[in-house]
Amino acid sequence: MVITPQRTSLRPLVRPDYLPAGHSRNPKTDTPDLVSQSDAIRLVTLTTQPTDAELVGRVVARDQTSLREIYDRFGGAVMAVAQRVLRNPTLAEDVVQETFVSFWNSPDGFDPARGSLKTYLLTIAHRRAVDVVRSEESRARREQIPPDPDYSRVEEDVMTKVSSETVRQALNGLDENERRAIVMAYFGGLTYVEVAKELGAPEGTVKSRIRAGMRKLAVNLQGVDL
């Protein structure tokens, strides 16, 4: 991989003979490629932190180390969604394992044009988790799931642990009913019909709340006005 540091107007701070580990002198100019501390930092960051797309490319080439790196980046989030839907650590671990094994078997399914790698893995994991909750064939597994939780606590938990202030603000920007319906559907693994039953609200109303809330979040988090 060729890394082209972005030149800055900063005065060079690095001695001409300074070379960060892994970088060579430019043979044409006989000077180091790096001219500033900020470039050096950026380069070291780039070389030690491959992009998600680079890691996927290496997984396609059957590099398990890169799968481990992807697991280190997103395994926690995948477990977080599986654990919230299933409320049983053993079942959640099954889903995490199946998600990553599935990705290992078919990494080509990830299309960076359609979304982030985190989104891709979470889509697989969430679908898998709700399949466990809903599938008739998995009745024995479903029996291991504790009864319905207190959804106001689930909502609090989501609001507390959410990864960025931007997301927290976007969730706070929703009508309370919209936020509750979205949290119950996504983190509770419920269909909108089940959410309506839980809330004692008409199905059409819950459908509209989820739709309106998701569209507001799309504007605030993705900059897309749908």
Binding site: G76, A80, G115, K118, T119, V162, S164, V167
Partner: peptide, 9 residues
Amino acid sequence: NVAAQLVPD
């Protein structure tokens, strides 16, 4: 992508 952003790391 929105849903994924709601999930904590």
